[in-house]
């Protein structure tokens, strides 16, 4: 197990390094000089050169890449062109919004999708099943930002139960912060829950048809006990895979939904960075998003080993 873990982590690090290189190269071939862009048309060549030196832009590309890589470890990611503050601090601050948002959405999606999928499977081919699957088709089709807009329309503008946007920060305690995050998290979670419900349903139906379910029933277990004790754990294996794949969609979703609810998170920072052509910020943010998706995929592989003894290396 330890060797497997080490190998998987090594793979992750290699993938991250490759991602960093690709992102760096893509942004490197971008035309235009950020220093000139920042100073505007009135800048003299001297002031531009001075700013270039200050930002480290006069260094060769290879050295700047290595410095960035080192910075990824130490947290010193250079200065944001637009904000003129360290990128590391900027990202750290916004992290406190996006991470709880993503985790909350993931929990809601699993908490809604998996039980509904199990319910549909245990009543497969009944009216309840048909209704649940019909609803899940709708959930798949509705974009998360439209969910967001509808929630704002209904719960904020209409009923006034929730703020329509903004974030009070964590300093006032978790109450107001969670209150501000619940609608965006739900908007993110519903399409994911629809996917999870469908996958869970088919995985549970498949598991219920296995011979070991008959063995369990022959031991004297009820249908429900056989489902919970025997089918569910086997069915969770494909569900976890999809959960991992969905995480990368979730990250993408935060970019959009943070826009809907005006949350000061990483996603909105990324959109602002693109608007301001803030390359230092863009490259670190894009790497963070890609890295998070890759890290979750690695976690899924490790979770496999825990769920399925057959995948466990001897």
């Amino acid at each position: 197990m330890l060797r497997f873990l080490a190998a998987r982590i090594a793979m992750l690090v290699a993938a991250l390094a490759t991602a960093a290189l690709v992102i760096f190269l893509v942004l490197e071939i971008l035309p235009g000089d950020p220093a000139a862009a920042m100073l505007g048309v009135s800048a003299t060549p001297e002031t531009i050169a001075a700013l270039r030196a200050e930002l480290g832009l006069d260094q060769p590309a290879a050295r700047r890449f290595l410095r960035w890589l080192a910075g990824l470890v130490t947290g010193d990611l250079g200065l944001s062109y637009a904000y003129r503050v360290p990128v590391g601090g900027l990202i750290g601050e916004r992290f406190g919004v996006t991470l709880p948002l993503a985790v909350l959405a993931m929990l809601l999606a699993a908490g809604i999708g998996i039980p509904l999928g199990v319910a549909a499977a245990s009543r497969a081919n009944t009216r309840l099943d048909a209704v649940l699957m019909g609803v899940s088709q709708l959930g798949l089709a509705i974009p998360n930002f439209w969910f967001g807009l509808l929630f704002v329309l209904i719960f904020s503008i209409g009923l006034g139960w929730f703020p329509s946007g903004g974030f009070p920060g964590w300093s006032a305690g978790p109450g107001p912060a969670l209150h501000a995050l619940i609608l965006p998290a739900l908007a993110l979670a519903l399409p994911m829950a629809a996917v999870l419900a469908r996958i869970t349903r088919s995985a549970v139906i498949e598991a219920l048809g296995e011979d070991y379910i008959l063995t369990a029933r022959a031991k004297g277990l009820s249908r429900a006990e056989a489902l919970v004790r025997h089918a569910l754990r086997n069915a969770l294996i494909p569900v976890v895979t999809i959960l991992g794949l969905q995480f990368s969609f979730l990250l993408t979703g935060t970019v959009v939904v943070e826009g809907v609810f005006a949350l000061p998170g990483l996603g909105r920072l990324l959109i602002q960075a693109i608007g301001g052509h803030d390359l230092m910020l863009i490259r670190s943010l894009v790497l963070m998003f890609a890295g998070a998706a890759m890290a979750v995929n690695a976690l899924v592989d490790i979770a496999y080993g825990l769920l399925d003894p057959r995948m466990r290396p001897a």
Partner: peptide, 28 residues
């Protein structure tokens, strides 16, 4: 009833199935 049958299954009547490869739960 189903409940009474459950008390019999496994307790008074045991059953061995055909496929040893699939009749055991792979994750237990």
């Amino acid at each position: 009833s189903e409940r009474e049958l459950r008390a019999v299954r496994g307790r008074r009547i045991g059953m061995v199935f055909q496929e040893p490869m699939t009749a055991l739960n792979p994750v237990m």
